[in-house]
Nucleic acid binder design. Structure first.
Length: 255
DNA sequence: TTTGCAGGGTTAGAAAACTT
DNA sequence: AAGTTTTCTAACCCTGCAAA
């Protein structure tokens, strides 16, 4: 299963990050020496993966509806093993990636046989929220409950442990609460999308957002399933690296 | 302290517009 | 009347910062 190609695309353009600013913008020097401004879909602080001078990969996607023709997709950073590794930084990608993972059958063991997948389905108290993915089990499945899947892009890590979030996120807290609220009539699954191949476990980023960590552990106790999925990012695609264990305790507690 | 908004881009579903 | 295509809207990505 590991190594299964999940997404493939035209080879990305490589360059050097000059600076990231105004949250959505990044200036990048291409290999031919020219400079472009790319759209940075990741609005977070991108702790540990934002290094001016590092190599980055861009997608060229000019369109009349876009102001910027380039999208920043990947960044090269020092990995857990001391080697450089590529990290996926586009927060729009994980939803598609996890969907592809499920469709490829990589999570059959954990999720059971799936009949259909819907994305961005309205739910919650005032039907104001949207669940990333809503899965309908196949008729043969033992557990017939629908499965609510919330996907979180994870780029931060300490050592070989991936961490989310990397900043205070009241929105993330809200998502955890809403996952708990669909229990027990439905299954609730939080999938940290580990967008780098060098991590071997997942834990909540307590040092960045202690309340999120607390709520995360409450969610585990309440029956929310956590299913970290690990991927390798290449110039022309993304491949499956397998699931990873989720740790409830903050990594510093083990010291 | 809390609320509101901005920023570029994507998406699903609703609504409108246009065809048969 | 029913089907197809286009346009529009709101939530999402998720903070960071300014204003109340």
């Amino acid at each position: 299963m590991t190594g299964t190609p999940l997404l493939s695309f035209e080879p990305l353009t490589e360059g050097i990050l000059l600076k990231r600013y105004k949250r959505f913008l990044a200036d990048i020097e291409l290999e031919d020496g020219s400079c472009v401004t790319a759209h940075c879909a990741n609005t977070g602080p991108m702790t540990g993966v934002l290094i001016p001078g590092q190599r980055v990969r861009l997608r060229h996607a000019p369109s009349p509806t876009r102001k910027l023709a380039w999208t920043w997709e990947q960044a090269e950073v020092p990995g857990a093993d001391g080697q450089l590794c590529w990290v996926g930084i586009n927060t729009a990608l994980p939803n598609r990636l996890i969907r592809a993972t499920i469709e490829a059958g990589c999570l059959r063991e954990q999720l059971g046989e799936i009949e259909s997948i819907r994305a961005e389905v309205v739910y919650g108290k005032n039907r104001k929220s949207r669940i990333d993915l809503l899965l309908q089990p196949s008729r043969e499945a033992i557990d017939q409950r629908p499965i609510y899947v919330e996907v979180k892009n994870t780029t931060w890590s300490t050592g070989s442990t991936a961490l989310f979030p990397d900043t205070v996120t009241t929105r993330g807290q809200k998502h955890l609460q809403e996952l708990m609220d669909v229990l027990p009539e439905a299954r609730a699954v939080l999938i940290p999308c580990l967008s780098r191949p060098d991590v071997t476990a997942f834990a909540p980023g307590d040092s960045a957002d202690p309340r999120y960590g607390e709520l995360f552990r409450n969610a585990l106790d309440a029956g929310v399933e956590v299913l970290p999925c690990c991927f390798r990012f290449d110039r022309d695609g993304v491949t499956w690296q397998g699931t990873r264990p989720a740790q409830g305790q903050q990594p510093s507690a083990a010291l």
